[in-house]
Amino acid sequence: MTTLADFSATTITGQEQVLSEHLGSVVLVVNTASKCGLTPQYAGLQALHERYGDQGLRVLGFPCDQFMHQEPGTETEIAEFCEINYGVGFPMFAKVEVNGEGAHPLFRWLTGAHPDAPGGEIASGDIEWNFAKFLLDPEGRVLHRWAPQVEPADLAEDIEAALAERA
Score class of each variant (00 low, 15 high):
37 G>C: 05
75 E>K: 07
47 A>Q: 07
162 A>D: 11
119 G>W: 10
120 G>W: 09
75 E>T: 15
52 Y>V: 15
30 V>D: 02
38 L>C: 06
123 A>K: 02
106 L>D: 06
161 A>Y: 07
35 K>C: 06
106 L>R: 04
102 G>K: 09
6 D>C: 03
120 G>K: 10
112 G>T: 05
15 Q>G: 00
44 G>L: 03
11 T>G: 14
69 H>V: 03
25 S>Q: 11
141 R>N: 03
88 V>C: 11
110 L>T: 08
75 E>A: 13
38 L>M: 10
25 S>N: 12
136 L>E: 07
95 K>W: 02
31 N>H: 00
154 D>P: 03
50 E>A: 09
72 P>Y: 11
27 V>F: 13
127 I>S: 04
88 V>I: 05
48 L>Y: 03
118 P>R: 01
83 E>M: 10
155 L>S: 06
160 E>T: 11
18 V>S: 04
47 A>G: 07
31 N>L: 08
53 G>D: 05
8 S>G: 07
56 G>S: 10
142 V>Y: 15
116 D>C: 07
144 H>E: 04
84 I>D: 12
38 L>R: 12
133 K>I: 01
155 L>E: 06
53 G>M: 15
44 G>I: 08
59 V>Y: 01
25 S>E: 14
158 D>E: 09
147 A>D: 12
112 G>H: 02
144 H>V: 04
147 A>P: 11
151 E>W: 08
148 P>T: 11
165 E>I: 06
146 W>Q: 08
124 S>W: 03
161 A>S: 02
45 L>D: 02
76 T>A: 12
44 G>D: 05
33 A>F: 12
112 G>F: 02
166 R>F: 05
101 E>C: 01
100 G>T: 00
115 P>L: 15
127 I>A: 05
163 L>Y: 00
28 L>A: 05
144 H>R: 13
103 A>Y: 01
69 H>G: 14
42 Y>S: 09
124 S>Q: 15
88 V>L: 07
82 C>Q: 00
30 V>E: 07
138 P>H: 03
54 D>H: 10
160 E>W: 09
81 F>G: 07
64 C>S: 15
66 Q>C: 12
130 N>S: 07
146 W>R: 10
59 V>W: 13
85 N>Y: 01
30 V>T: 04
119 G>D: 06
145 R>K: 05
65 D>S: 00
97 E>F: 12
72 P>F: 14
63 P>V: 04
69 H>D: 10
46 Q>L: 08
125 G>Q: 13
39 T>R: 15
45 L>F: 11
129 W>K: 06
48 L>A: 03
80 E>G: 02
6 D>R: 05
